[in-house]
Design a protein around this nucleic acid. Structure first.
Length: 109
DNA sequence: GATTTGACTACTA
DNA sequence: GTAGTAGCCAAAT
């Protein structure tokens, strides 16, 4: 059964992110009905490292890999994104709008 | 139970 | 376009 914890919700949505796509914390927060809790999404992903959640597909609204430091400490996040077809330049996602995936828009329903 | 913190976002200068 | 400040909410201490 689904857990009501905010973290679990974030994990669930993050797991639903399609291949080669990225999204923002605010988008996930909004999808969960907690718009404004973007920071909580980041905190949740902080624990996602232990889960099978592709947290590397979640970046800030600028497409900047703000959480790359929270990974293994190296450029693993960027490597993963590039490995999925998402080009990264200076810790920023290239064509962010193009790779942007909005759960409210595509995952909805 | 109160205080602090944080992988953010938006507004203003 | 960049820089700084404020607002926001949930989890951890």
């Amino acid at each position: 059964m689904p857990e009501n914890g905010f973290f679990s919700k974030v994990f669930k949505v993050t797991e639903q992110i399609p291949f080669g796509r990225v999204t923002s914390y605010g988008a996930i927060a909004k999808f969960l009905g907690a718009s404004g809790s973007a920071r909580i999404v980041g905190s949740a992903l902080n624990g996602s490292n232990k889960e099978n959640v592709p947290a590397h597909r979640v970046v800030n609204r600028n497409g900047l890999l703000t959480g790359k430091h929270h990974f293994q400490g190296t450029n693993l996040m960027q490597q993963l994104l590039e490995s999925e077809g998402v080009k990264v330049r200076e810790n920023k996602v290239v064509n962010f709008e193009k790779h942007f995936w909005d759960p409210n828009r595509e995952l909805k329903l």
